[in-house]
Design a protein around this nucleic acid. Structure first.
Lengths: 233, 233
DNA sequence: CGGACTCTGATTTTCGAAAATAGTAGCGAT
DNA sequence: ATCGCTACTATTTTCGAAAATCAGAGTCCG
């Protein structure tokens, strides 16, 4: 019987390193650790309660994902943000996500349809609770991620899904960056509903432009409302 | 004045960890470490002369690249190969490389043209030396990589270039896997020449199908001549 | 005989001390 | 005053011992 006294941490993985990786990724994506911020071992050690080596392993993994910038012999820092990077991430997401939605629409079975419908349903329920600030609600964030994940999950390529997931995280960081400055959320609920319907009715030619617009509009809003944060670096 | 007595290793990076990562990647890509082979720390420690922790960091980084398979609490192993994985890597490469060659052809400047021409020239020179077994020549391998890298280098997206590089390595491992069983190399030189000419003359509609065929033919040959190695897992 | 349990040896995972390196301030010479 | 050198401090990077975990053999009981 595992109990919390014996197993004080490790919520998201069997090893402490995997757990720290998960928690650090979360902090970086939500901008709890600011872009460009140096990641000093003393500080991390105190915050996460792990040793140098374990932290180093987590940071190395996140560096490979593009969320952390490793400067050899000079430590790590949160990957900086920039207009250029936002454009690249957005472009890459469109390229890959569009292809994946096509494949998923072609290959998806009943379970796929159920996953798409049910994840959207949950997302809408959460939005009803707090329609003003969805991004600040961690549950909304998870549900939103799961809906988009479900949409492409039937594409048949674990390789492309992994790449997609990395790009999604990098984009989500920009969304969080602008969340505090955005005056009012746009009608994301309607967009999600339209995407779901196009997908379920197997209308790829409709779903593709909807997805593309969805991604690009989000990025445009980031550039519009958080542009002042993207200048340096 | 740096000398080799003071700095015994670290050929490819400022830190030992980065160096080990590089060397391990090389060994895995060239199948010096066989697919699926367990990576035990005692063995690696002896082979690479680094400590547990440093090795662990390198393995973690390679796991994020898809060349190593991390089994939590049960160590690491070289990522297994499979028909499915080969198909996924090939598909992903076509999707991304085709897009990048389009962008490079549109954006490439004089320096890009020079890089494409000169890397192809070097590749051809090396092929003249040993026309029979190019893949066994490490110099050919490097030149080949650099030619393909040069072709897309002007695409303007560091993000997509990094993804492309990872997929290239994963594909190269399959090429090495089949190299020992392939009866005779096909006319790669001619294909490279045609791709170069299409690119330099800015004929994207010609270059794209050439690249796609180039990638798919390579993968087909792997499946044909190394198919017996792809069954398990 | 079979299933659950425990013990044991092998292996991975984690830790903090020790070594290596970068950054900085102080000093002296031109 | 400026440049170059040196010593010092802050920080990262590496190491091997110690703890945790797993896999397999053996044991006990139903």
């Amino acid at each position: 019987m595992p109990d919390s006294a014996i197993r004080p941490r490790k919520e998201f993985g069997k090893t402490i390193a995997a757990d720290i990786t998960h928690r650090l990724r979360e902090e970086i994506v939500t901008c709890g650790l600011a872009p460009g911020e140096p990641l000093r071992f003393d500080v991390l050690r105190e915050r996460f309660g792990a040793s140098f080596t374990t932290l180093r392993e987590a940071l190395t993994a996140l560096a490979a994902e593009g969320l952390v910038d490793a400067q050899e012999q000079r430590g790590f820092r949160v990957a900086p943000v920039s207009r250029q990077d936002l454009v690249e991430v957005t472009d890459a997401r469109v390229l890959i996500e569009v292809e994946l939605i096509r494949r998923a629409i072609q290959k998806g079975d009943d379970d796929w349809e159920i996953a798409v419908i049910s994840t959207l349903h949950r997302l809408k329920r959460i939005e009803q609770r707090d329609p003003e600030h969805p991004l600040r609600d961690p549950e909304w964030k998870i549900a939103h991620r799961q809906f988009h994940q479900a949409l492409v999950s039937a594409c048949g390529s674990a390789t492309l899904l992994a790449i997609r997931a990395e790009l999604f995280d990098r984009a989500e960081r920009y969304r969080h960056l602008s969340a505090n400055f955005r005056p009012r959320p746009r009608d994301k609920a309607g967009e999600h509903q339209a995407i779901m319907q196009a997908a379920i009715s197997r209308n790829a030619d409709l779903a593709v432009p909807l997805i593309e617009t969805h991604i690009r509009t989000t990025a445009d809003n980031v550039a519009k409302y958080a542009g002042h944060l993207l200048e340096t670096e």
